[in-house]
Amino acid sequence: MEKKLPKIEIIEKYCKGCHICVEFCPKDVLEMKGFYASVKNLEACISCMQCELRCPDFAIKVITE
């Protein structure tokens, strides 16, 4: 069965580049691209929502169906 991937939306207008989402992602999905966080490896995402839960700036949304 094919795994359904979530959509990770990063609002760059709100992101302050604090690295929290990148460091606390258990599957190493995110990386810092310049000042902002960005998605590196979406296939590894398990939709644990840790990045959305911990982002202090309301800048990440993990949209699952």
């Binding site: 207008k13 302050k16 700036d57 309301f58």
Partner: peptide, 14 residues
């Protein structure tokens, strides 16, 4: 109102 005034990494947002 966003982005808020708190510094990068401040826990108040959490």
């Amino acid at each position: 109102k966003l982005p808020h005034i708190w510094c990068p990494g401040c826990g108040h947002g959490i």
